[in-house]
């Protein structure tokens, strides 16, 4: 545990002592701010109209603002995740610092988990920025906080899975760009896999659709904690980290 924390701490520092973290956070804040502004503006107009039509119940902020915004975050996240994970091992391999880690009394898995955890934490900081936007909804409205909390949990799990895949891809190359592009492709594929379910009902299509990260987010987005979906994300995390450790191990036997 101590070793994991040492590595995690070092990674977080290197995110935040280089422009990487600030750049990602700023871009994300701007993009999400725009989504939020649009979403709230639209909600404002719609609820005004519904009031004029004399509907008795006000529109739900949870349903019309929070839920779509959460799935927006999950999609924007797909673009940001490769940028967070591409550095993790590719850079160490390029500069040779991997030799320091590999010859220190610390297990490969501790290095991997430490690095992955740092990336997840950076993503969590990203989510904090979105929380600043949501805070306004609580100031001027009265949404339910529980679906939002579950939505955040889902986002963290989803990012955890994708970052684990990204970590694995980063162990495969010395080149950050290749790691980033590969992770982006993987994220995109995992996102669009569910499309096959739209026209095909054969078992293989169901399997493919099951593998898609987006389908498993639906329940979280609605504020429902479904163990089936949580298990999917946790398995993805384990798979990614396991493959990373195999990849590091094979590096020693091949190199």
């Amino acid at each position: 545990m101590r070793n994991i924390w040492i590595i995690c701490n070092k990674e977080l520092r290197s995110y935040f002592t280089s422009p990487v973290a600030y750049l990602l956070l700023t871009m994300f804040a701007i993009i999400f701010g725009f989504f939020f502004w649009n979403s709230v503006g639209y909600f404002d107009r719609m609820s005004l109209q519904s009031q004029m039509r004399g509907q008795s119940f006000p529109m739900s902020v949870n349903e019309y603002v929070i839920r779509p915004l959460l799935s927006n975050i999950s999609v924007i996240g797909l673009f940001f995740i490769p940028m967070m994970s591409m550095r993790l091992f590719a850079e160490e391999k390029r500069t040779g610092t991997i030799e320091l880690l590999a010859t220190s009394p610390i297990r490969d898995l501790e290095v991997i988990v430490g690095k992955w955890l740092a990336a997840v934490m950076l993503y969590a900081v990203l989510l904090l920025f979105t929380a600043a936007n949501f805070a306004f909804l609580f100031k001027y409205g009265n949404p339910d906080w529980r679906p939002l909390a579950i939505g955040y949990l889902g986002l963290l799990l989803q990012a955890g899975g994708l970052l684990a895949v990204g970590t694995f891809i980063s162990t495969l190359t010395k080149n950050q760009i290749i790691a980033g592009a590969g992770t982006f492709a993987a994220c995109l594929m995992l996102w669009v896999l569910e499309w096959v379910a739209g026209y095909e009902t054969a078992p293989w299509a169901k399997v493919l659709a099951y593998c898609s990260v987006i389908t498993h987010y639906e329940s979280f987005g609605k504020g429902v904690l479904d163990s089936k979906d949580a298990i999917y994300y946790v398995s993805l995390i384990f798979l990614g980290l396991f493959l990373s450790s195999r990849s590091l191990e094979s590096l020693r036997w091949r190199s």
Binding site: N3, I6, K10, R13, S14, T17, S18, T95, G96, T97, I98, E99, L100, L101, S104, P105, I106
Partner: peptide, 21 residues
Amino acid sequence: SPPVYPEMEVREYLSFVGKLK
């Protein structure tokens, strides 16, 4: 080639390695 992290300060780096060990 010395396995150093360019974005770290010398002291910070040495204590990171010390912790690793």
